[in-house]
Amino acid sequence: MERVPLPAPLTSHAQATAHLSLDPILAGVIARVGDLPVLTPTPDPFGTLIRNVTGQQLSVKAAASIHARLTGTLGEVSADTLLATSGDTLRGTGLSWAKVRTVQAIAQAAKTGAVNFAHLSEQDDETVIRELLPLPGIGRWTAEMFLMFALARPDVFSLGDLALRQGLARLHPDTPSAEVLSRWAPYRTLAARYVWADNARVKGGGEPV
């Protein structure tokens, strides 16, 4: 079977915002929020996933503090250093035991090749999700955030994210979600970021954009 080319990360939002603005309600959100920075793929998918996991359910400040302590303890955040460090030491950086288990499982998967982080960027979205889901502590939401913010995939909208579901329902209360998301394709990542930003404007909060 011929492999379908992956969508390239966006280098500009001009075409995407023009398409999304065909939805007059989202056009209003875009006008209110203004320009958002263009996402670029990470050069270090492994390290980015570790940082994502260690920062989950924490404030930006707390997540940065824990990652700084983790880096200070390990010297370099890699599969080798994570596997060579005891759980107690990792716990001492501020990680919960559940996160200790997750980061060590990610490191083991990278070490054994169960997940080939160097080639994740070559896989389609659903393949990346399937690669990551067997890891303990990694659910579909985490995998979708990784696709959006680490791999800069342009067409991801996580219905597992409560804020996105609520924002979608607030903007389009009388239209089925599937219909709205179909209209927003193939730029649903940028649409999600505008929904997060509009949620923050309406209700306050710090959803990532």
Rank of each mutant, 00 (worst) to 15 (best):
R3I: 15
P5L: 11
L6C: 09
L6P: 06
L6T: 11
P7A: 13
P9D: 11
P9V: 13
L10P: 02
A16E: 10
A16V: 13
S21C: 14
D23S: 10
A27F: 03
A27W: 02
I30H: 01
I30K: 00
A31K: 09
R32Y: 00
G34C: 06
G34E: 04
D35H: 13
L36W: 06
L36R: 03
P37N: 10
L39Y: 11
P41Y: 03
T42L: 11
T42P: 08
D44F: 07
P45I: 07
G47K: 05
L49Q: 05
R51H: 06
R51Q: 12
N52F: 05
V53M: 02
G55H: 05
Q56W: 04
K61N: 08
H67T: 13
H67F: 15
G72W: 09
G75T: 11
E76I: 01
E76N: 05
T81S: 15
L82D: 07
L83T: 07
A84D: 13
T85V: 05
T89G: 00
R91G: 07
S96K: 01
K99T: 02
R101L: 09
Q108R: 12
A109L: 00
A118V: 04
H119Y: 05
S121Y: 05
Q123C: 13
D124V: 09
T127K: 10
V128R: 01
I129P: 06
E131V: 08
G137M: 02
E144L: 01
L147C: 13
A150D: 07
L151F: 02
D155L: 11
L162K: 10
R165C: 15
R165N: 15
R170M: 08
P173L: 03
D174L: 11
S177T: 15
S177W: 14
A178M: 11
R183M: 10
W184I: 13
W184F: 12
R188S: 12
T189F: 07
N199G: 13
G205F: 05
G206M: 02
E207A: 07
P208H: 13
V209C: 11
